[in-house]
Design a protein around this nucleic acid. Structure first.
Lengths: 201, 201
DNA sequence: TCCTCAAACTTGACACTGTAAAGATCAGGT
DNA sequence: ACCTGATCTTTACAGTGTCAAGTTTGAGGA
């Protein structure tokens, strides 16, 4: 339980409390999992009283939203980086992004879980979370675009790809259902994507 | 908050407390969502003291496991029923099961969420939950069998199908990520499954 | 029949959670 | 200089799960 960015000289105001609380939350999520993410622990890490986070984010839901928004930003960054590194060919690009998607979920299971839990509760407000989520969606949608053949909605391809990789990630995080028959590898999963038609325009 | 199966004449022993607690949990999950599922509320519904559930299930995790196990049983029942009603043709059967899968998730969002959350924490023990989960997996695996062509592992097809429908269900429960582009319909999603090869043996 | 004893449940306490109201402190404008 | 509003603290409270210790019940043996 290390203090994150404590004030140099103790003033009453923290200076960058919002940032410190989100960082503390990400840290707790990584070290202790979802159960360890607490208003009071975040407050302690940031070196403020336990009621300070509730004040800034008006309740724990707001803090979770902010953490999830940061998560989506990191998520989009990771996918974009992977896409930029690989070859500029549609199928390879899509697969690279899917692999980055899965790698992120596997590396940050509690955060990934929180992200998709929080984006549900967002009822129109919390624009930061909405924007971060939309950006992540955009990265994947762009990779899907070359596979949108004439007469089919882009949403169809996007939903198919997103469902497939999200479902696989969720199932892997959850371990296998039937321990007698373990899940296939990511590469095997992507076999289904290779059946998508490439637009021939 | 209605009492479930209260004892006719008040004896010290409840008689069928385990059953009453699981039913109470399912009821709470349906009416108030995950946040409303509480040891103490379940106890009140079953007409026992707040510590009784913890005694039977040694902690709330045990109660959640039992509820999730019941959920997987209902889940497998629903998929089997749908498969039995439809035509005995591989593709139609697989699609019917996927639609039943999605319908169950949509009808019982909190329960569906709990099921996949709990099956993760099960560390080898809690055989009831493991068995119920394996049965549900078996229903879907059986529907996948006709698509297992020579040279590919059954787990590959099963993982592809399970990931696709689970991912879609999870995304729908979570609402759309980018509200500017809503998710495609289930039927559109199943378009990807129609690209699977049928075994020609 | 009565006794014993283990299991089922209750009671009471505890630590911890999020929330709310009210007070203290500080920054900045007039 | 003084007010004003935002920031943070203090204090209190209801609710959560868990634990230890006590009470009741029912079943099985002497």
């Amino acid at each position: 339980m290390v203090e994150i960015a404590p004030p140099a000289k103790h003033t009453h105001h923290h200076g960058n409390l919002r940032e410190a609380l989100v960082s503390a939350g990400l840290s707790l999520l990584g070290s202790e999992g979802a159960a360890g993410l607490t208003l009071r622990k975040c407050a302690a890490m940031a070196g403020v009283s336990h009621a300070a986070p509730a004040h800034h984010f008006q309740g724990i839901a707001g803090l979770l939203d902010a953490i999830a928004a940061r998560g989506f930003t990191l998520f989009a960054d990771a996918m974009e980086a992977e896409a930029a590194n690989g070859p500029n060919e549609p199928r390879a690009r899509l697969e690279a992004i899917c692999l980055a998607y899965f790698a992120f979920a596997k590396a940050n299971p509690a955060l990934y879980d929180l992200m998709f839990r929080q984006i549900w509760s967002l009822a129109g407000k919390e624009p930061e979370l909405g924007r971060a989520g939309a950006r992540a969606y955009g990265v994947l949608a762009a990779a899907c675009a070359p596979f949108v053949t004439d007469g089919v909605e882009p949403a169809t391809i996007e939903t198919q790809v997103w469902s497939l990789i999200h479902g696989y990630s969720a199932l892997v995080l959850v371990e296998r259902i039937d321990s007698n028959r373990p899940l296939a590898s990511v590469e095997d999963l992507l076999g289904l994507l290779r059946r998508l038609d490439l637009k021939t325009a």
